[in-house]
Design a protein around this nucleic acid. Structure first.
Lengths: 157, 157
DNA sequence: TGATACCGTTGGGCTCACCAATGACCTGGA
DNA sequence: TCCAGGTCATTGGTGAGCCCAACGGTATCA
């Protein structure tokens, strides 16, 4: 074999590139695991958020999970048609839909959570528990810059 | 409604979710920066890889960057039409295209590399240099499991 | 009452990742 | 020599995730 697998590039050292590759692998593993329950990642995320937050509006769900309102409509539609959540008009604010998890939704969530945990364990199999916590902490700080950073020049172009 | 920004979910502690969010932010920042030069992330990645590897076939570029051959065609097409790379048939193997960076491509690459570095600096602004290196190391190990792990059941599915 | 803002919904577009198939081509062995 | 199998570049399509614009219905505030 002539070509080595090479240590390619400047690219491979950029956090943005590494994040993209790692996220792709994570998505692949988790989506594959959740597919056994017929759910996609966002479905599981919404289901889990609904279980935690109780009856919530779709807009609030979208804000908490950074999901586009357009996509949220489709997700809730499918979850509702599967009987995993209920969508009832909010009497206090008739614009809103109160999304709540159903009994079967809670049951399904228990299984998908186990599958998601398994997939994440495989994703971080090369890391020690301490390193995994470290990764989680670092990623968390990367994700939320606006809540902490107030002086960063917002790329004034 | 003055709801707190909440400490949402089990979801927000999963590495797969955090990786997805962080990658989305990284892509947003880098893509926005590179857009000033009229290039997308993959264009810049390919351009950088070509600069490093010298004349390479498209298939080899795709393998090194995990880019689908189909997408590689479109990327090389655009890079070539912009005069940033040259695509000459390989005399030794007429199936292959020898992709090489041009002079203007090298010039453009210098600018896009600076823009990419800036964007990555902003992406990791909340991290100290040591933490950034830590993150890179952890991500690198997450990405390449096959090259190290030999006993992990590869979830043949 | 009217102005403003939000909610859900629908419409489109863009980027990235993935899979199937084809013709041209190289390589190996019969 | 010819054939089989594999690789390369290319084209086709699919799906997920993210973003923008617009609309009717509704709540809130002046």
């Amino acid at each position: 074999m002539a070509e080595d697998p090479y240590a390619p590039a400047r690219i491979r050292e950029l956090p943005s590139w590494l994040l993209g590759r790692a996220a792709a692998r994570g998505h692949h593993l988790v989506a594959g695991a959740l597919a056994r329950e017929g759910l996609r990642m966002m479905h599981h995320a919404v289901l889990s958020a609904v279980a935690e937050l109780g009856p919530v509006s779709q807009a609030e769900l979208g804000r908490s999970l950074s999901i586009d309102p357009k996509d949220m409509v489709a997700i809730v539609n499918e979850l509702q048609s599967r009987g995993l959540v209920t969508r009832t008009p909010d009497p206090k604010d008739r614009r809103k839909n109160a999304i709540a998890i159903s009994v079967s939704g809670r049951r399904r969530l228990r299984r998908t959570e186990a599958l998601g945990d398994e997939a994440n364990a495989e994703l971080t199999a090369a890391l020690s528990p301490a390193e995994r916590e470290q990764l989680i902490a670092l990623l968390t700080r990367i994700i939320q810059p606006e809540e902490l950073a107030c002086d960063t020049t917002e790329s004034s172009e």
